[in-house]
Design a protein around this nucleic acid. Sequence first.
DNA 1: CGATGTAAATTTACACTGTAAATATAGAGC
DNA 2: GCTCTATATTTACAGTGTAAATTTACATCG
Lengths: 204, 204
Amino acid sequence: MSDCAGMNDVRKYHHGDLKRALIQAGIEILRTEGLDRLSLRACAERAGVSHTAPKNHFGNLTGLLTAIAAEGQKQLCAAMQPNQGASRDDRRQAAFEGYVAFARANPAMFELMFSRRLVDFSDPVLAAPLGASAAILRDVSGGMIWDKSDAPDADKRAEMFNWCLVHGFATLALQGVFDKDGMRDIGIADILPGFAFRDPAAAE
Amino acid sequence: MSDCAGMNDVRKYHHGDLKRALIQAGIEILRTEGLDRLSLRACAERAGVSHTAPKNHFGNLTGLLTAIAAEGQKQLCAAMQPNQGASRDDRRQAAFEGYVAFARANPAMFELMFSRRLVDFSDPVLAAPLGASAAILRDVSGGMIWDKSDAPDADKRAEMFNWCLVHGFATLALQGVFDKDGMRDIGIADILPGFAFRDPAAAE
DNA sequence: CGATGTAAATTTACACTGTAAATATAGAGC
DNA sequence: GCTCTATATTTACAGTGTAAATTTACATCG
C-alpha cells in the first residue's frame, strides 16, 4: 500500500503533499499507460483523492499537465549532462545522445513536454528547466565554425541549428517516420556534421 | 458535380459527397478555430449531418483526422515545390522555406499532421503524400558534400539531416521556443549550412 | 480552551466528447 | 415493383473537464 508519495503514509482528509503526489501520478501514468490515458481524473484516482481535488493546486488540467511537463524538462536536462571534465565535442555528443535517448525512453512524456495544446509554455514553472536545457545547447554550440560564422548572431544561430537538428530528429524518429529504408539504424551522431570550433583550446 | 460544400445545396438524405465535405469541414475548423475545437461532432455539424454520420466513411475519429492530415500533407508538399527550372540550391531553399512557411500559416493543421496520438501513420491514405514530401527532401539532399559524405548511406543521412533540421525548426518556432533573445528574426535560411554538392553540374 | 476563519477535499451537476446499437431512409439492380 | 445495401439518424452510454455548493480539518487568535 505504497500510495501517495510514499514518504509518510498517514491517510488523512488533507493529503499533505497532494501537489507532488499528483505530478508523480501523472508521470507514472505517462510511463505505464501513455499520454492518451493521462487525465485529471486518472491522476486524482491514482493519488487517492476525488477528481476535483487537483483544482485547488493546479487550477485546471493545463496547470497539472504543465507541472508534469516541467518535471519532464528537468529530467531531459539531466539526461543531457556530460561526464565531468568532458571536452566540448564530448559534451555536445552527450547532449545530443541524451536528448534523443530521453525521447526514446519516455515517448509519452516527451510528446507532452512539447505539445502546445496541452502545456502552457508561458507558465513560470517551465522557465527554469527550459532555460537550463537551452544553456546546455548554448554551451555546446558556442564558437562553432561554419559558413555562417561571420554573421553577427553566429552563436545564436549555432544554438538554434543544433536545437532544431536534435529536436527534429527526436520528434520524427518517435513518430516512426524513419522506420523504413534502413533509416532506423541511423542515429543522431550519424547525421550530425562535425563542425570545428574557433578555439580548439577552449574546447576543454 | 461536386457540390458538397456549398455549390449545389440540394439537401437530401444521402449527402452525396459527405466524405469530402467532412474533410473540408475539418480543414476549415482547423483554420478558423484551432485544433482544440476539431471534433467528430463539430465536423458533422458543419457538414450538416448527424454526429454519427462520419462513422460510415471513416470508422472512427482517428480515421477522419488521418484523412484531414493526409490533405494537409498534400498541401505541405505543394508548398515545397520550387519554380520550374530552379537549381538544386534554389530547390532546397524553396523546400525549406515552403516547409516552414506552411507550418507558420497553418499551425493547427501542422500540429495535427505530426501528432502520433491523433493520426494513424500506418493508414494507406498517408503513404502517397508522405512519400512525395520525402522525395522532395531526397532530391534536394542527394549528393550533398559534408564530413559524412563517405559513409555508405550518405544520401540517406543527408536526407535525414535536412528533414530533422527543417522539421525541428518548424516545430520549435511554432511552440514559441525561439521567441526570445532576438531569435525570432532568425529564419531557417539563416541557420541552414551551405553544403556543397558533389557534382555542381548536376545541380541544374 | 473554545470559537472562528481558511485552506483543502468532497459531493453534485452539467456540457461536451467518441462510440455502439438499433432504426429509418433512399437509391441501385434485378 | 421488389429486395438489397449503403447511408444517415436516433438513442443511449461511458468518459472527460469544470463549476458551484458543501464538508472537513487544521491554524490562528481572543
